[in-house]
């Protein structure tokens, strides 16, 4: 069984006529890195909210099917319990940090669990160190750059020791340097610590090289689900308005002219290596 099992889930927010999720099935294995994408309003954020129990505990509505997180049925477990398995990181780090120092923000979650002092200290130190925020722990969050604030928000979530990190467009408020900083941190947490990642993103050029799978949603349903090389070269992805990375478009333009590369490239560096191999062998 996967660390996340979404089984035939449908959800309609109270007061809304249209279901936000419409018979969604999704299984994510431990330590997988999955990108979730799709047009605005397709249900991505609602799906994220299902994973730590915000739906149906906080957002009310008509919930069908079931979600299992680390084997726990989200209907039967409360948000504080689920948040020890799934950590959610949002778009704007400013909305997630509220303490006077980074350290206090990171300690907030474990303190609320009522953990022993030593354990809190251990977790805070660990979370600050793996996110590279140890040196900045005494700084007020509002004085930090966007990238540093988002790292602090990730540290605060990690201090809960979740197996799964769900990030809802975590780079959209950051500049390119800040975005690169966050993506490489998330990739490292996935690779080195085996943390399962579900990353909601529109910008697949920056993110797809890290992904094991790309899941595309449309109108509350899962429309496509597969390795990035497959999903991003499919006709359906184009029809659904997924932004296809330039390297993949260039790969296809070259193929039309008879220059076929042995693999679908996901990054410029990889593409250059493939081209170099092919042209030198000719």
């Amino acid at each position: 069984m996967g660390i996340i099992e979404v089984e035939d889930v449908s959800f309609t927010y109270s007061g809304s006529k249209r279901p936000a999720l419409d018979h969604v099935d999704l299984s994510i294995k431990k330590s997988e890195f999955v990108i979730l994408t799709g047009p605005s309003g397709c249900g991505k954020t609602t799906l994220c909210r299902c994973l730590n129990g915000l739906v149906p505990h906080f957002y009310s509505g008509d919930f069908r099917g079931r979600v299992l997180v680390a084997g726990l049925d989200t209907r039967e477990h409360e948000i504080w319990e689920l948040s020890q398995h799934v950590g959610l990181v949002f778009q704007n780090p400013e909305n997630q940090l509220f303490c006077l120092t980074v350290e206090a923000d990171v300690a907030f979650g474990p303190e609320n669990l009522g953990l022993p002092r030593e354990e809190i200290r251990r977790r805070v130190e660990w979370a600050l160190k793996v996110t590279g925020m140890w040196e900045l722990r005494h700084r007020p969050p509002h004085e930090l750059s966007g990238g540093q604030q988002q790292r602090a928000a990730i540290a605060a979530v990690l201090a809960m020791k979740p197996e799964v990190l769900v990030l809802d467009e975590p780079t959209s408020f950051l500049d390119p340097a800040g975005a690169a900083e966050i993506l490489s941190l998330v990739a490292e947490l996935n690779k080195r610590l085996g943390i399962t990642v579900l990353l909601v993103e529109h910008r697949l050029d920056m993110t797809s090289p890290y992904a094991d799978r790309v899941v595309v949603m449309a109108k509350g349903r899962i429309a496509l689900d597969g390795p990035p090389e497959e999903v991003l070269t499919s006709r359906e992805a184009r029809e659904l308005g997924v932004g296809i990375p330039k390297v993949i478009r260039l790969y296809e333009l070259l193929a039309e002219r008879g220059l076929r590369l042995p693999e679908v490239p996901l990054s410029p560096g990889q593409m250059a290596s493939l081209i170099s191999e092919v042209v030198r062998c000719r």
């Binding site: 500049d175 390119p176 050029d205 920056m206 390297v247 260039l250 410029p268 250059a272 081209i275 042209v279």
Partner: peptide, 20 residues
């Protein structure tokens, strides 16, 4: 300007670096 190169010239730069 802390910008990441666009993908198209980035591919070409990488090729140039490989001596092509």
């Amino acid at each position: 300007a802390s910008l990441v190169r666009p993908q198209v010239p980035e591919v070409l730069f990488n090729l140039r670096e490989k001596g092509l």
